Computed example of a mutant assay.
Amino acid sequence: MQRLTIATRASPLALWQAEHVQTLLRDAHPQLAVELLRISTRGDQVLDRSLAKIGGKGLFIKELEVALMDGRADLAVHSFKDVPMQLEPQFEIGAVLEREDPRDCLVCSRFGSLQELPAGARVGTSSLRRELALRIHHPALRVGVVRGNVGTRLAKQDRGEFDALIMAAAGLKRLGLADRIRAILPTAQFLPAPAQGALAIEIRAGDNAVRALIAHLEHAPTRAATRAERMVSRALGGSCQVPLAAYAEVQGGELRLRAWAGNVARAQAVTAQATGSFDQAEALGRAVVDQMKAQGVEQLLAAALEADSSAGASSAEADSSAEAGSAEAD
């Protein structure tokens, strides 16, 4: 191959990610022309409704997959946490890059921690997972939905629409905005989303030529960790409507997987953890899910989904509740 085209979303963070991969490929293959194909996805365009209402996280990758299938692109770069748990059979994840900081962080100009925020302070977030963590550990705070790319969210906080934001640290660091991070939130309270902070390269299934060109980008520990995390989400029907966290850390040559899932309205969550080898990553995920099921997680999630369905949609409750089902894109 003489030319390689990368499909990417048009948001600043997505472009940074694609340009990062572009640079790595050019360095490894100087003879190869590596170009970007910028695509605006429906997930980027519709910002006034939650993703659960307009189709879920897959809206961020569908148009990119069309470009792969019709030959306009050879690969697509994604924030791995925005990739659906089950890809269509004509696609595969050709490489998983080494993970950036997977943790959540506090963005706030006036206070240095969530504990310092006064009762009733409004905190913006884009996910049910973060909302549930806030309701469990900081019930005196109000939660509001905030969507849009990183710059849009920061601007809303700067205008005073929110007293603070909870965001992914990785996105801010990648965009050179680490100075906006007031505090890194402890994983004991704010466990990351499955695959948060990791980049995935999607290719056409069976495309051995492209797979060989990106093979040097593969990071085995991150692949194993995200495989375990995504198995938890897959086994529990993870979607934008399910508040779920799963995070696997490499400890002593093994994976330590922690996970929780729950019900925002009840401010309840079921937690579990297990340790296992890299080559048993998916089995580790299933073991954690079995623990959670034994504690009644299925009933807890079913009650949450039933309540959301009967309401017809997750509406804001006089600024006291985040709109349900928004993905953590960016």
Rank of each mutant, 00 (worst) to 15 (best):
R147G: 07
H216D: 13
F80M: 15
F60G: 12
S233E: 09
G325F: 05
A327I: 11
A267S: 15
V123A: 09
P102T: 14
T41S: 11
E92S: 15
G43C: 02
G253D: 12
F278E: 00
E306Y: 05
L301E: 06
I214D: 02
V83E: 13
L236V: 11
I214C: 02
F278N: 09
L305C: 08
D330M: 10
D104F: 15
G176W: 12
H29V: 09
L236D: 12
L191R: 02
I203P: 00
A183G: 01
I166S: 00
R3E: 14
D179Q: 09
F91V: 01
R49A: 15
C108R: 02
A259Q: 07
R3L: 11
G176F: 12
V297Q: 03
P139L: 14
Q17Y: 12
T226S: 10
Q241M: 10
A322R: 13
K62R: 09
V297N: 09
G148T: 03
A302K: 08
M231N: 08
V210E: 02
L37P: 01
L37C: 04
S309E: 12
A10C: 14
F91Q: 01
R99Q: 15
L4D: 01
D290K: 15
L191N: 05
A178Y: 02
S50M: 07
A269W: 10
R266P: 01
F278M: 12
D101W: 05
G206D: 11
G176D: 07
K53S: 14
P102N: 06
G43M: 05
D74Q: 15
E218D: 11
V210H: 01
F80L: 14
T222M: 12
A18P: 01
G56M: 08
K57E: 13
A274E: 14
D70Y: 14
L68R: 00
A133R: 00
A198D: 01
G262Y: 07
R3T: 11
V146E: 06
